[in-house]
Design a protein around this nucleic acid. Structure first.
Lengths: 347, 347
DNA sequence: GTTAGCACTCAAGTCTACCGAGTGCCAGTG
DNA sequence: CACTGGCACTCGGTAGACTTGAGTGCTAAC
């Protein structure tokens, strides 16, 4: 009851008490999924003030846009701005021992190609967090060609198999209506190797203009490779736990909208990249500009290898989310993933 | 109460009038999503009987398990058995001209590798039917090796790239702690070719037991290939329109359960294969034994190439589904898909 | 500045009544 | 004897009236 001066330290542009109250509203609301009333806040904090005092502060917080009231006689709910403040002033939490060891364990035992690992990782992430996860493996636009090979399927069909320096492999059909002999194909394969090894997909190649079968094959093959370039560069996307979407939102329409977005890989990739570019770890509500995801928060962590961002992982859940835990998990997995690939390149 | 003999003409084990009534209930219920009353049936059919008569028949149909009543004073709803009768006695419908041309158009313009085509096809299917689609590409367990190549990534890492006769390409990491020179790798690659070309994944290979670098590489590579065999054989699965699940069911829990099943590729594949094996085109409700899908119907069509089932496509929706249209679409797409791959192998 | 007190608001729950779609049964009819 | 019209009955759904209670905003007092 007795009055002392307001505690000086301001956190952001909110005085300490407002910040405490806002934090309490967020944590409480995340727990209960219900609007939070002034007395609940008073009880949850160590401010030792009466609900009435909390109420005045909450009015201010609402006026400043951090809180909202579903209706007059209900408690308060955090707005996107409120969540934003919350995560911006979150002290970095460590991930629990159990989780930590589960992540370690996973990466100790996971085997197989990069693609498989990333897919498994997306499953791991969604299991750990109970949210939908997205793992993006960067395209290999800057990777150079290590080897190409033209393989004979039948008289008129060949397959161009290309191996890149980042360990990815692509294939392209090459059709040849006129037909070519096996030695011709072998010779074309040899010439393609000479032509393409060391180049990247962006670079332009000098192709032979002769009219013989070998030259024709070489031309066909290189054009198949370069025409498809934009698509191959395309990142791989792995989505884990999409069923979690149905748990996160109770409006069927919201579920449908979110799932619908997740189906569009291009949209998902650019969403993740945008958040990554903006150098934020979290996009809350409508911050990312995708209207159907305005009820979601997206947490992103990059996977950096040798100073280069080679991928990213994302977690998508309702704005009402345990940011601390989920962010810590994302960080932990991202770290381990980096270590995993840093330790054994190409595997 | 009075007992008379059942009217002669039976369609299946139902007399003609009961069948008509059952059909009417199904079509009406599919349209309206509401229980169907006797007068609605009387109006919808050309039986020219009064609702009262329809009612007596419906009582019989209910007793025999074709219809059910949500509650005493409601209309009737088809049971799984009712739907089963309906689809079993469905005259094969043709797909509409608009759809037909859309399918044609799709396959006329689609380009790229088999994998891409299948993925696109799953999207097409879900767009055409408004249901979730599954496209399964059979594994290449019986395909033989056309070519293998060992590519040097760095001192201790190599990549085994294998091309199969069905046009699929796999890659496997091969580690070599001791290190090998570039000529060694080339030599190993040559030997692997000699060893593996023409074999299938099942066949056992005689590997050299010498201790030199080349032999070591050859051993490592073959074992990598064969260890992974069960996984590579694994079919590819493409799921399209998973957001449709949210439209089909209004219980959030059902949506979650169905999505959860769809996430498990193995389960999906074996579901489709089971239905295919049982030689039925449709599994309704609990017929397939997957409890979480008991509110679903699954329509399956095989993709047959040269007498061999090389894949399948499935459509998953609520039991309350337009079977005629959806089955016709599945058939049409399956046909075109067969033609597409039959016409231009490997492309 | 803080608080207790109080009047006020409003979603949610309960109760009642009622409507109407649909049924099952039965007696009458061609 | 199959069909029908008539009728009493059932029961989900809706609407309105009332109550409850959580939570608020305001204000006067400390």
């Amino acid at each position: 009851m007795a009055r002392r001066r307001p505690p000086p330290v301001a956190s952001g542009d909110l005085d300490a008490r407002k910040a405490t109250i806002l934090r309490a509203v967020v944590t409480e609301h995340v727990d209960t999924a219900q609007p939070v009333g002034s007395s609940a806040v008073a009880a949850a904090t160590d401010l030792e003030v009466s609900p009435a005092t909390v109420r005045t502060e909450m009015v201010a917080l609402e006026r400043e846009g951090y809180l909202a009231q579903p209706h007059t006689s209900a408690g308060r709910v955090p707005t996107d701005k409120g969540y934003r403040f919350f995560v911006d002033h979150l002290e970095r939490g460590a991930v629990g021992a159990a989780q930590q060891s589960r992540v370690r364990d996973f990466f100790a035992h996971v085997r197989g190609e990069m693609e498989d690992v990333l897919e498994q990782t997306s499953k791991l992430l969604s299991q750990l967090t109970s949210h939908t996860s997205v793992v993006v493996g960067a395209g290999h636009s800057r990777a150079s060609v290590l080897s190409v090979q033209l393989v004979n399927l039948d008289a008129h069909h060949h397959l161009l198999v290309t191996v890149f320096s980042d360990g990815t492999v692509t294939k392209h059909s090459v059709m040849d209506a006129a037909g070519a002999s096996a030695p011709d194909v072998a010779e074309a394969s040899r010439q393609l190797n000479a032509l393409l090894i060391g180049t990247t997909l962006g670079s332009r190649i000098q192709v032979p203009s002769r009219a013989d079968a070998v030259a024709r094959l070489v031309r066909e093959a290189t054009s198949a490779l370069h025409e498809a370039a934009p698509t191959i560069e395309g990142e791989q996307v792995y989505i884990g736990g999409s069923s979690r979407v149905a748990e996160a939102f109770d409006g069927v329409e919201t579920v449908r909208a979110v799932l619908s977005i997740l189906e569009q890989e291009l949209v998902v990739v650019s969403l993740i990249e945008d958040i990554l570019d903006a150098d934020v770890a979290v996009a809350i509500g409508s911050e990312h500009g995708l209207e159907p995801l305005s009820a979601c928060a997206v947490i992103v962590a990059p996977v950096v290898l040798e100073g280069e961002t080679v991928g990213a992982l994302g977690l998508l859940g309702p704005t009402r989310m345990r940011y601390r835990e989920v962010m810590a998990t994302a960080q932990a997995v991202s770290d381990e993933l980096t270590r995993h690939f840093g330790g054994e390149p190409g595997a």
